[in-house]
Amino acid sequence: MRILVIEDEPRLLHNLAKSLREEGYAVDTAATGDDGLYKAENYDYDALVLDIMLPGLNGWEVLERLRKTKPTPVLILTARDATKDRVKGLDDGADDYLVKPFDLAELLARLRALIRRAAGQQRSILELGDIVLDTRSQTVTRAGEPLTLTAREYSILEYLALHRGELVTRTVLYEHLFDESDDSLSNLVDVHISNIRKKLGRDLITTRRGQGYCIET
C-alpha cells in the first residue's frame, strides 16, 4: 500500500512517514500543497494524509483539485477542530477527518479502514480458502498455523487479496508497494511472488503471462 503524506510541520512529517513505513506502507511525503497535489495527481496512492494549513495551496484547494481527477481516499489531519471545518472537509470529498493532536494507533486504524473500504472490503480479516490475513496485526495463518512472511511479501499478498479476482499488473504492484525512496529492481516483485508461493503454495497466486498476477476468487 502506498500512502502520500502532505504535512508542513517537518518533525511531524518525519514521524508519520517513519511510523507508516514501519507498518509496511510505501510512503511519499510532501511539505507544501503544490508538491502534494502534483504527486497525488500523478500516482495512484492507496490513501492520502492531508494537512489543511499548508504553504502554497492549502489543504482545501488540494482536495478540491484532486477530486476532479482522482478518487484516492483522503484523510484530513489538521489542528482545525471546529465542526464546520470537519463538515466542510467531509463534504468537500474527504473520506475521514482526524484532529491534531492524534494518536498514532488511531491514525493507522483509520488508514487501514480507508484502504479496505476503497477495495470494497468490510472486514479487516481477509480469507483466501484456509489462508487468513489479519490486516490489523499483519499476520497470515494457514489452517490456524501462523506463517512467517516478510513485510514486502505481506504487502504484495495483502494487495492481491484486497483486489481478489482482479488482474494486478506488475506496474500497479510497483506503484503501490514501493515509494519514491525505494530503489528497487523490476524483477524484485517476481522474487517476492515466488517466495510467497513457496510459503503458501503454488496455486494461490496465478500468473497471467505478460500481464500480471491474480488471486482467483
Partner: peptide, 17 residues
Amino acid sequence: SHELRTPLAVLISDAQT
C-alpha cells in the same frame, strides 16, 4: 488552536513513533 495543537501533535507522534 492550530499553533498549540501542532506542537502537541509533534510531541505525541514523536513519543508514539
